[in-house]
């Protein structure tokens, strides 16, 4: 284990997260939208809005992970 590269291992796990994060973000966004719609009675507008936000958040997270893969110094 002495010759391993910690940045590489961290990148590996982060990269494995990229796909599942995209799906999970959309799921969470839609979930928040449905919940708010039920609570405020504004169906279907908040569901649509938060689903779009979830999609943006998913791609934003994938972008963050991928740009970190290209530039290990910025990886957080």
């Amino acid at each position: 284990m002495a010759d391993r590269n910690p940045a590489l291992i961290r990148q590996l796990w982060q990269a494995s997260m990229a796909g599942i994060m995209l799906a999970a973000c959309i799921f969470v966004g839609t979930g928040i939208g449905v919940w708010l719609d039920r609570w405020l009675g504004t169906r279907p507008w908040l569901t649509i809005g938060f689903m779009l936000l979830g999609i943006v958040a998913g791609f934003y997270n994938v972008f963050k992970i991928v740009s970190a893969l290209n530039n290990p110094r910025r990886l957080k």
Binding site: M17, M21, C25, V28, G29, F50, A57, G58, N61
Partner: peptide
């Protein structure tokens, strides 16, 4: 916020 909430889910 959505990104943070998606973490425990995934």
């Amino acid at each position: 916020l959505i990104g943070e909430l998606a973490r425990p889910l995934s």
